[in-house]
């Protein structure tokens, strides 16, 4: 069998060699853009796999556009508010949901208004948790959480009706607690801090 050189079939093989291989010399000597040597960039786009393209920054513009779009559209949905409802506090946070397929923390944004507290997921425009303020009977910060139950972050527990406890989480715990305290106070509700802690298998309130 004789090796072939100048046929159409050898062309791809040859292009591969010239584009992908050959001696590479240190970048400070050669022309490059932002430290990336530009090696036959556009032909690569036609021949190379995704990995190579990313490596050589070809997908960068596309990636940036996608990110920009995502950024622009992410959480574009604000929680639908009742007319004239004023948002007192808006903080990112989560509630512990025990209904559904499995128990999990669900993340969104807390909206506190003079009437209610709700947790809203902007991406899906979904209300994850909602409680009218006059249903809240008690509130406490629960520090002592076992690893299995979701980490070391303190939780805000709200007592809603008889033995129904909502477990909430946010990094702005104190501002949220104080704001809820003030709002319920304005409604003439006094919150107890003695929230009964049910055993872990007791029903918890879910949205």
């Amino acid at each position: 069998m004789e090796p072939q050189r100048d046929t159409h079939a050898t062309l791809v093989d040859l292009l591969d060699r010239v584009l992908d291989r050959g001696l590479v010399i240190h970048a400070d000597l050669i022309v490059s853009v932002a430290g990336i040597p530009l090696i036959g960039v556009n032909l690569r786009a036609a021949l190379a796999g995704m990995e190579t393209m990313l490596q050589y920054g070809i997908m960068q513009a596309w990636d940036e556009r996608t990110r920009a779009w995502e950024q622009q559209h992410r959480d574009r949905q604000e929680a639908a508010l009742l007319q004239g409802e004023e948002v007192i506090l808006k903080v990112p946070g989560a509630c512990y949901a025990t209904e559904g397929m499995f128990a999990a923390w669900r993340y969104g944004r807390f909206y506190l208004t003079p009437k209610r507290l709700c947790l809203h997921h902007g991406g899906f425009d979904e209300v994850l948790f909602e409680a009218p303020l006059d249903h809240i009977k008690g509130m406490m910060i629960h520090e002592n959480i076992s690893e299995a139950e979701g980490g070391d972050q303190p939780e805000l527990w709200l007592l809603l009706g008889e033995e129904k406890i909502a477990r909430l989480k946010t990094s702005d715990l104190d501002p949220l607690r104080q704001a809820i305290d003030k709002c319920t106070g304005d409604l003439g509700i006094h919150l107890t801090e003695e929230v009964y802690v049910p055993p872990s298998d007791a029903p918890m309130v879910t949205p």
Partner: peptide, 21 residues
């Protein structure tokens, strides 16, 4: 010969032209 990959371009500097580089 030691072949280079496509598009290997030696640049000049403030203190050295490309041939010197």
């Amino acid at each position: 010969v030691i072949p280079m990959g496509f598009d290997t371009i030696i640049r000049g500097d403030v203190d050295a032209d490309p041939e010197k580089n």
